[in-house]
Amino acid sequence: MQLDELDDLYREVILDHYRRSRNPQHLADAEVQADGNNPFCGDEVALQVKLNGRGVIQAMGRQGKGCAISQASASMLTEVLQGKTLQEAERLGRAFRRMMQGEPLQAQEREALGPLEALEGVRKFPIRIKCALLAWSILEEGVESYRRRQG
C-alpha cells in the first residue's frame, strides 16, 4: 500500500473536517442560500452565508452528504470565509481553483487559503478535483443569484 500518496490526498486536517464538520447548523435567515450536487457521484452540499450590515460574512452554515474531499472542502470553506466580504470570498475561490489546476500562487494567497492548502494533494487524483471544487462552485452560483436579487 502506498500510504504516502494516499496520505497526501487524505491529509489529517481533511479527515478531521470530514469526521467533525464545522458550522453544520442551517441558517434560515442567511442572505445567500445555495445548494447543489455533483451528478456524476451524487455528492451534495448546501451553503448559507449570513452578512452583517457592512457586507461582511458574519456566519456560515453548511450541510451535505458525500465523500471526504467534497465535505471537508465545504467545511473548511465555512471556516476560512468568516469575516471576509463576498468579493474577498470570490477572490479566494479563484485562488483555490488555480491551486487545484496546478497554477502558481503568491505567498499571500497561500496564506489566505489556510487549511484549504491541504487539498493540494487532490491534484494527484484528477478525477477527485471536482469533489474539492464542488462547494466553491455552489458558493459562486449562490452569490451570483444574491446579487441578481439585489439588482
Binding site: 500500500m1 465523500c67 465535505q71 487524483f125
Partner: peptide
Amino acid sequence: AHPHDLGTFLDRE
C-alpha cells in the same frame, strides 16, 4: 466512509 473514498483507497490496493 463514502464509496468514492473507498474506491480511491482500494484502487491503491
